[in-house]
Design a protein around this nucleic acid. Structure first.
Lengths: 354, 354
DNA sequence: TTGTAGGCGTTATCAA
DNA sequence: TTGATAACGCCTACAA
């Protein structure tokens, strides 16, 4: 037995299962059994091995494990824009639900210049994933790639424009077009005729586009003339969907001296920024301007005035996402589409003009 | 050449480097060279191999790569409570700074019942990390384990109580005791004598404890008697540091009919919840109650009224964290401690009693 | 109940 | 410039 070898490796902190086997005078299989709670191992041997492991601070190498394993019990949640508070309650639900199934999960950030599907494919190989949830994001150029994904996945809270293209996949979302229509319809019903919108300039980001289309349709149905000048695009050089973006855009809108009585922001964060700009101009919400948001973030409730918004049932959507994913994993279904109704929450930030 | 074997594997999407080698009629080494941009490979061969890779949608297995590689160029950021908005601006800085150094980074969530240091040790082995940033968190029971970490790391925005124990490690933080003192001192200066505090009940969470101690000291220095009844603990059955927690606690405080003129919440999110509770009780901020927060979240600026708070210089702290980390990696330093000054931002939510 | 040996998919060494 | 082959650290038939 090459004890000196063991000693040396201990020092550089690169213990392997072989070292532990030698140190405890058993074979590697036995060590492996101890680590992985295999049934056919003597309890005493196991205890002894575990003690040696503890004493020497041995930590198994996950890369080696993943390489060898054919399938793990882990799910990946891919999120682009992981700092978006909209996802926070969903993440909590995912955690709970996935633990319930005795699976573990990893939260994986996808940054702006990555393709979420490519990231997913890589992750599947690396971690032997059993399932994937794509949170948010756009799939405009990924349909081809989606086919290469060999594990079940669910697209959660994605834009509906893609849906026709994604028939053969599973998704959970709301009807952004209709819900947005609902909000603008409500504002029109309050007597507002000059309704500014703050929306997303990126044409490929379908959620923004859908909400924008809903706005236009509602105006049309109320016989209100569409005014291009009242369409305000988020600034591309500022973080999108941020409060500061809504703030800056609204400041410009106010400075423009354009006449309007309401601002509809396609996200609560933007709406809050809009309120701030209005306050700074010495005006009030809703007395001088009504402000409406979208998403139903916690913040929209706590804000003063509380923000009229479209509340997406995020918790239920997250639960359904996991339910579908596991149904896919267990081959109970081929795919499933779920479109949740959202709720118009009328709060303090909007008022009737009459 | 076992072409049928290759074909079969293609179908099940489990191509390996060997398959690609066979498909392109070269050796695995050559394929590896192509993938990893090695210099000593014929450009044409490389192009050809890459084409085969593209055509067959081959994706290298990261577990195998990590297993074989001795060191990568990646940094891990470990965050407990990844949904905490306080970290958001820091994450953006980390991303930028790490990319500048031509490193990549992974954001790793640590959940409540995990030990961040154990997670780190595992990750180092799995990913051959070059460095680690611990964001937030508590290190009360991990000092022993910290010694087993074989790569450089920086503790960022941690509580100072641990600092004496962490002399031999690097950290970046603010002096929570002093900054908290500053805020309460300011409130006292405004004439407030009955100042309620909303703080953290978990004694081991040192940040809460430090801010609480600063509160007590400031009262004492102003000759104000400490009143246990004005100390309000976050509810343990509600998400900590959440708006709803501040809301519920403040509601109870108001219901208690205790007399007080100011609420100092040890986090902005709690302060916002407190404001909401006050509004719902038909009272105003700051006319009826002054409210102060801590952290300097974006939200504290956008809220109405804007919240008086202690602003931590999060961006600079994040930059410094990375700077120190790379200095450690390049062995320029042994360790470094940096305590940043925070700033008392006097805004609309607090008023003088005189 | 325990141990030996082969293979998971790469990269690195060395020789050609 | 290329290719065969030995690790990397673990798990798991299969044998004992």
């Amino acid at each position: 037995m090459d004890k000196s070898k063991v000693k040396e490796r201990t020092i550089v902190e690169r213990l392997t299962i072989i070292d532990i086997a030698k140190l405890s005078g058993v074979g590697v299989t036995t060590v492996s059994r101890a680590i992985n709670n295999h049934p056919d191992i003597n309890e005493e041997t196991k205890a002894m091995v575990m003690r040696v492991i503890k004493e020497n601070h041995y930590v198994p190498n996950n890369s080696a494990r993943n390489l060898k394993r054919s399938a793990s019990r882990t799910i990946a949640i891919l999120i682009r824009g992981i700092t978006n508070p909209f996802f926070n309650p969903m993440i909590n639900v995912f955690e709970k639900e996935i633990q319930n199934k005795k699976y573990s999960f990893i939260l994986h950030r996808v940054d702006e210049n990555q393709n979420e599907v490519e990231v997913a494919i890589e992750l599947v190989k690396e971690k032997r994933l059993r399932g994937i949830v794509f949170l948010g994001g756009t799939f405009s150029h990924s349909r081809e790639k989606l086919k290469q994904l060999t594990v079940p996945f669910v697209l959660s809270t994605i834009g509906m424009t893609e849906l026709s293209e994604l028939k053969e996949h599973s998704y959970v979302t709301v009807d952004d077009y209709m819900e947005s229509y609902k909000m603008v319809d409500y504002l029109c019903g309050l007597g507002h005729k000059r309704i500014a919108i703050i929306t997303d300039p990126r044409a490929d980001v379908n959620i923004g586009k859908l909400r924008y289309e809903g706005y236009k349709k509602a105006l049309e149905d109320h016989g209100i003339e569409f005014d291009e000048q009242l369409v305000r695009w988020m600034k591309e050089d500022v973080e999108s969907y941020s409060m500061i973006n809504g703030y800056k855009v609204t400041k410009e809108l106010l400075d423009s001296q354009l006449e309007f009585t309401a601002v509809y922001a396609i996200a609560d964060s933007l709406a809050i920024g809009a309120c701030k700009a209005i306050f700074e101009a010495g005006k009030r919400v809703p007395e001088d301007y009504s402000v409406a948001g979208y998403d139903g973030l916690d913040m929209s409730f706590y804000y003063n005035p509380s923000i009229t918004t479209i509340k997406q049932p995020v918790e239920e959507m997250a639960e359904e996402t996991i339910k579908i994913l596991f149904d896919l994993i267990h081959k109970k279904i081929k795919h499933e589409h779920k479109i949740f109704p959202a709720e118009l929450l009328v709060r303090e930030s909007t008022k009737s003009l009459s």
